[in-house]
């Protein structure tokens, strides 16, 4: 059930092995990359199992959309090559388990899915979200996070239930068939991961940045351009949906923000390092964070804008220490709207 759509034959013909060659956390030559990849496909031990930072990026790097990262996670789980200490994973599995407390509720469009971040509901405010209603909590948690823990089985088990929960308790009830994903991870889950695992998605997810772009167009007259330099921290889940990246530029253009040119942006973005810390690789996490923030500072960024709340919480203090203001994208838009 819910078999991963990964085609070994495509890899056999692949010359570039971009999935591993472009990886920022492993330095492999082409022959070695090919060899390691073959081992993985065969189900043999490979250094990739232990060295993968679970940054999701190879999903973007593979020119053939063959889901290399999902495959790595499959193998990690099969071989019990746990990237994160077992009790940390088990604790998280308990804490983030579905509670079975969801009840049907009528919502009014636009509907925002807060996923595991209902505590950030306060950010759904102002002109951008006028009239919006929200839902969230562990009974509607997208569960994609388990990719970091080598637990595709948990995704297979929990995600379809979450999809049912959303449809049966919120959407059906409200006569709505679409919602805005507050978290990029949800958008990635429903548009990329679910299809890759053959999980049906009976609703239309809208990326938060697409929604913000549209709203900013509607509120155009009220925008006071920021005229500020802004660094963008691209989250891991955005590697699943690189086609949504242009909305960052679109939003910045509308609010008068300059996306600073820097080394670690776009395809070359660095992980916030929260997961690397969970993997107990503190020195690597320090190095990744330092390079990333040095890069933002060198580019003269006044703000560091985040898409993902988890990245925000992991990096906000470090960014602030360097005199750069950490901020969520919607909050940056509020500033431009004078809110």
């Amino acid at each position: 059930m819910y078999e991963l759509k990964f085609n070994e034959k495509i890899c056999e013909k692949c010359k570039s092995i971009d999935c591993l060659m472009k990886c920022q956390y492993m330095d492999l030559g082409l022959d070695e990359a090919r060899e390691e990849w073959k081992k993985l496909i065969r189900g043999d031990d490979s250094r990739v199992l232990g060295d993968c930072a679970t940054c999701y990026a190879c999903e973007e790097y593979c020119p053939n959309k063959n889901h290399p990262f999902y495959m790595i996670v499959e193998r990690q789980e099969e071989k019990k090559a746990w990237p994160v200490p077992i009790p940390l994973t088990e604790q998280q599995l308990l804490v983030m388990r579905p509670r079975g407390r969801i009840k049907p509720q009528k919502l009014r469009a636009p509907v925002v899915n807060m996923c595991a971040f209902p505590m950030l509901q306060g950010t759904i405010r102002g002109k951008l979200f006028e009239g919006a209603s929200t839902f969230g909590g562990y009974d509607v948690f997208c569960n994609i996070m388990w990719l970091h823990f080598a637990r595709n089985s948990t995704i297979r088990e929990r995600l379809p239930k979450m999809i049912d929960n959303i449809r049966n308790n919120y959407l059906k009830e409200s006569g709505v068939d679409e919602f805005i994903c507050f978290h990029d991870e949800c958008y990635g889950t429903y548009t990329h991961l679910a299809p890759a695992f053959g999980i049906e998605v009976p609703f239309k997810p809208i990326h938060l940045f697409e929604y913000l772009t549209r709203k900013l167009d509607a509120l155009k007259k009220q925008i006071r351009p920021l005229n500020e330099k802004v660094a963008y921290q691209r989250p891991c889940s955005n590697r699943l949906v690189p086609e949504t990246q242009h909305w960052v530029d679109d939003i910045f253009a509308r609010i008068g923000a300059e996306r600073v040119k820097r080394q670690y942006d776009r395809e070359n973005a660095l992980c916030c390092a929260g997961t690397i810390q969970a993997q107990q690789k503190d020195e690597l996490a320090d190095d990744v964070q330092k390079r990333n923030i040095d890069d933002m500072a060198a580019a003269g960024a006044k703000y560091c804008v985040f898409n993902c709340p988890a990245c925000f919480f992991t990096m906000k203090d470090l960014v602030a220490e360097r005199g750069i203001i950490p901020i969520l994208m919607s909050e940056l838009c509020h500033i431009a709207l004078g809110e």
Binding site: V84, P85, P87, Q91, G274, A278, Q280
Partner: peptide, 21 residues
Amino acid sequence: RASVKKYIDDKTGGFAPLPPA
């Protein structure tokens, strides 16, 4: 961390990443 490396290596224990709050 090095003092409890044994447990980190065999995955029976580890340090939880902590949100700033």
